[in-house]
Simulated scan of single mutants.
Amino acid sequence: MQHSAANSPHAASRRRVAFVLLPGFSLLAHASALEPLQMANQLSGQMLYHTVTLSMDSEPVRSGAQLSVLAQHALDNPLGPLDLLLVCAPTPLPYALPAKLNEWLRGHLGRGVMLGGLAGGSEVLARCGLLEGYRATLPWQRFDAFAQAYPQVTLSQQLFEIDRDRLSCAGGTAAMDMMLTLIGQHHGARLAEQVSEQFVCDRIRLADERQHVPLRSRLGHAPQSLVDAVTLMEANIEEPLSTLELAEHLGISRRQLERLFKKYLQAVPSRYYLDLRLQEARKQLRESDRAVGDIAFATGFSSGAHFSTAYRHHFGMTPREERLG
């Protein structure tokens, strides 16, 4: 979910952005955050973003891909004021954080600096107590452990979060969507779209889009029959099966199936199935030019009116309003 950004939109002033690289960081996440800023400079013909790369010391930082990056400065070098500070770290974090890093990060509080985490960088901020009272996200593999370790943080399963003066993302290419969203807030949607086009992105994914979590990971230790039921649902979006038909396919009773859904998913099968279909409809509305009526039928709705009503109740807007953005 996207909240208000700290900076006013379309401001033309140069913003200074620092990337702190910790050993094992993701090259993909780092590049996905850095390259859009450089491209925004190039397309605008202005130095909209001045970027700098930092490390704990003056030594090269080895990434998770075993390639080393030579940072421009060490943490203790004087940098001057920053607008945005992004921590790039692996997930999970396999080491304790140096006290110097904790002190240095906390030293930016109250200075108007937005703090962010890329991939494991979110966990770095949480360990330093810098995400308490904020919404934040990180790679899905760490959801459960993070929620237990940092109950003061409102954990999100979205691709990225921009909550006041804190940013976080799932890592990988989600970092690009987050930075494109920031560029749009700072300098307008058109520049963000132009940057996106340069990287051959079909579209800029929004902050309210969830990370794709593999089915078995989503369901944890749920019985195989529940996994099979959800698999059947996902394979039959256009022609939905009834709860009774699902149970018959699985060789269990309808009541047994309903109990499984209630215990592990806190929903009745029909409601969970409807959510799957509506999520697929939303994806098609955002990513394709198919007619709304065609999408309705492709996701198992018997009429456009039924589809529109269900969509509005679920997402708070009609399919046509969704498409208009």
Rank of each mutant, 00 (worst) to 15 (best):
S288H: 09
R62T: 13
A175R: 03
L244N: 15
G24A: 06
Q46A: 11
L138T: 06
H313I: 12
C169L: 06
A96K: 10
D202E: 12
N236V: 08
P90L: 06
R190N: 11
L285A: 03
L37F: 07
A89V: 01
S26L: 06
N7E: 12
W104D: 01
S253K: 04
A145G: 08
A96G: 09
L125H: 02
L21P: 01
L75Y: 03
Q157D: 06
E103K: 12
E280Q: 14
F19N: 00
G325A: 04
E321R: 13
H221Y: 10
D275S: 11
S270N: 12
V61P: 05
A235E: 11
Q158P: 02
Q198E: 10
Q148L: 10
L130C: 03
L219D: 00
H186L: 13
M317W: 09
Q42N: 08
T51D: 00
Q141T: 14
L22V: 08
N236L: 08
F261P: 00
L37N: 00
R290D: 11
L105Y: 04
H50D: 14
A147F: 08
L86S: 01
R312T: 14
R254H: 09
L109K: 13
L109Q: 15
E280D: 06
A174G: 03
P81T: 07
A119R: 07
R14K: 15
P269W: 06
